[in-house]
Design a protein around this nucleic acid. Structure first.
Lengths: 230, 230
DNA sequence: TAGCGTAATTTTGAATTCATAATTAAGTCA
DNA sequence: TGACTTAATTATGAATTCAAAATTACGCTA
């Protein structure tokens, strides 16, 4: 018999679909930590659902690379490895470059203004060294460009790969120097987008992603070294 | 009670994983035709499994866009629409371009020779106007380049999108003129790969994919017109 | 007979049950 | 005590059951 008043009982649409969304949030929020086992029973109790829809959701998350299914041993939250970062960022770079190119062809003046507003807000966050806000707005800008590209497939592919990278909370970590560079790159992104300079925007987004890759890899390497010493 | 001697009872690894593979084959082979309902019961009987693993597999296929889940109405095999082709091919083009660029950096001499062997075989199929063989080898060449790119994420992304396109059996349809062009493009692909000319190979693969997009769209449009008349 | 409304049937989504594999706990012996 | 074996417990994978939704079949009325 199901738990009647489970804390976060959910209602709308199909359970497995809702659960995919919820579990994604738990994973990128690190509430389900990388390398740990997915607590099937606890999650069923928490959401007030049976194992069937939860396990359906886990299969989907596994195909997206957020969890790994070990036969007869359950589901485990995957870790972000250096190898994975080296793989995913180039792909993400190619896709973001394409999104920039397509966006330049289809974006409206209103959308450009909206991106500019976000851009200005983000610059303010930079001045105040408010990393959390900076990153939140940063994501909104990239999503706005994707939206302007008018290609759902591209959006879906990008977001799936982004999610995989977001498992690493420390993605947000940047040195002061790298942060400054990122801001310069974003100035260029804004200008090329406003000028609808597709090729230049594509190139800038690609370089931007590659710089981020390098920065994240460096961070992970420093983490590894720290872990070794412990 | 389960059917004991179902015709294609399957064994190894987890059922849902195996079922994902099997159903993919049925869909791209059009045994499960676009636009039709996925016959849950019949497939359970056919594979000698219960609904649980089959439904898990359907959720995964839905997230890959091969089927669409309609709440309380079951799973339907998705159709390849012109809109989808216009979306997917540019993304696939960007990814294949990347694969070419990466492949040029990492491919070994042995691998180049292997691709050349495939290339020569493919040219023979062209001479004989053996479309089926031509396409089979064509796919092998693209897969070999992906393998040489040494990026699993890229491979996975490409193959997922390729699968979506392969639902259209008629993808293989080409006019004589288009076929000739495709062959010329493949000559360039072979040469640039052998010369490890990454940028040039990337550009050629991108153009190759765009030409294929145009060809497929044209085909689908002619189909639509035919359907209208009927 | 065509259209409508209702009952029977089937299908779906999700909970439950069940066999088996994996893990943990307990007991044995050197 | 500590390694090894075996029994008890728990978790997993998959089949089955069950309630609700959708579809089909049937009969009624105009």
């Amino acid at each position: 018999m199901m738990e009647e008043n489970a804390p976060e009982t959910i209602a709308r649409k199909s359970l497995h679909h809702e659960l995919v969304d919820r579990l994604q949030l738990l994973i990128i929020g690190a509430e389900l930590a990388p390398g740990t086992k997915v607590p099937e029973k606890a999650l069923c109790a928490r959401f007030g659902v049976s194992r069937t829809p939860l396990r359906e959701a886990l299969k989907v998350l596994a195909s997206d690379g957020l969890v790994r299914l070990e036969p007869n041993r359950g589901a485990w939250v995957t870790r972000v490895t250096i190898g994975e970062v080296e793989e995913v960022f180039p792909v993400l770079g190619a896709l973001e470059a394409l999104s920039g190119e397509l966006a330049c062809k289809s974006i409206t003046e209103e959308e450009i203004q909206a991106v500019r507003a976000l851009h200005d807000q983000m610059m303010q966050s930079y001045e105040q060294r408010d990393l959390a806000t900076y990153f939140a707005i940063n994501q909104k800008i990239h999503r706005a460009i994707l939206t302007a590209a008018r290609n759902k497939t591209l959006t879906t592919s990008c977001q799936a790969l982004s999610l995989r990278m977001q498992r690493a909370r420390y993605l947000a970590n940047m040195t002061e120097g790298r942060w400054y560079e990122a801001v310069q790159e974003h100035e260029m992104i804004m200008q090329f987008l406003a000028a609808r300079a597709g090729k230049e925007l594509a190139k800038t987004l690609l370089d931007h992603m590659d710089a981020k890759r390098a920065s994240v890899v460096q961070w992970l390497q420093s983490q590894e070294t720290t872990a070794d010493r412990a």
